[in-house]
Write a protein that binds this DNA or RNA. Sequence first.
DNA 1: AAATCGGGGGT
DNA 2: ACCCCAGATTT
Length: 348
Amino acid sequence: MSFQSEIVTWYLKNKRELPWRDTTDPYIIWLSEIILQQTRVEQGKPYFLKFLAHYPNVRDFANAAEEQVLKLWQGLGYYSRGRNMLFTARYVVEHYGGVFPTSYDELVKLKGVGNYTAAAISSFSSNERKAVVDGNVYRVLSRYFGVEEPINSNAGQKMFADLATELIANQEPSVYNQAMMEFGALQCKPKSPRCDECPIQIGCYAFKHKKVGLLPIKLKKVKVRKRWFNYFVGITNDEILAKQRTPGDVWQHLYDFPLIETQGEASLSDVDFLAKTQELFGKQLELKVLESKKHILTHQIIYVQFFAIDNYIVNFNLRTEIKSVKINDFKQLPHPKIIGDFVEKHID
DNA sequence: AAATCGGGGGT
DNA sequence: ACCCCAGATTT
């Protein structure tokens, strides 16, 4: 049997039941694929079900408010995906009369849809012969065929794309694509792959040359930036101080609290830090540390401190983006995970 | 070509 | 601690 036939046979026997697998509706597939970008199936699944329940079709999605979409997205990360989805849903209603496109060439023009996602939607919805190349496929191809070109170099991307295109010839595109990804996810895993019970062990370059742990090759490790966020929780009666995050930084468009970022851990005994807080909240300000946490992102480690503030006067001229909103309204807004967790734990 | 964008899970 | 996840977009 060929490499492809072995993979497909393995797939038909071992595939998971997933809620987006038994449809050819391009809208539903689009929903699942955007959610699953850089996201594990088990993490994305509840979000997929939630979004489908709220927006059963692309017109429902297009009619949503951006803050509602971001609220549903809360906790999933890479929030521009949610905003791009809303833009694309409205675009599809406007330019395609609400009929979601199924061809690769149309799909790849949509905001938030790149090579991978266009190949996935087109092959799953209309069986178009476009090979998906995601992290799973890189790994399976790299190991089996011994491709040692880095998967994140230009040369490597083209090499893997060309190889994947060759391999999908004469295959059933929808099934073959899903088989490759499922095989990578369950069998040819990044760590501790199941080589002992692998149907294509015999032809595998990496297994033969004991390079399974070395492939695929990936360049550059991200250098992590450390940051210190000092949040100020100001509550008077039934209102709380809120701030919407602006473009050019993490969590843009989401809502958090008034913030002073420092270059190291801020302390109430630090006169410099105290001066900044008084500039923003007045001389009578009383501060108290509520909680300290470490929040880890891909490119940043953020040390977060939450301060309760009393007897404060907000210098709105200094920070015009700060608003005072009803606590119940604040809870309805989309927040970064660390803020959402804080609110749930500390704010009644 | 490199940097940026989250949060969670595996080893 | 480090790597990866059904990647895309911006710089």
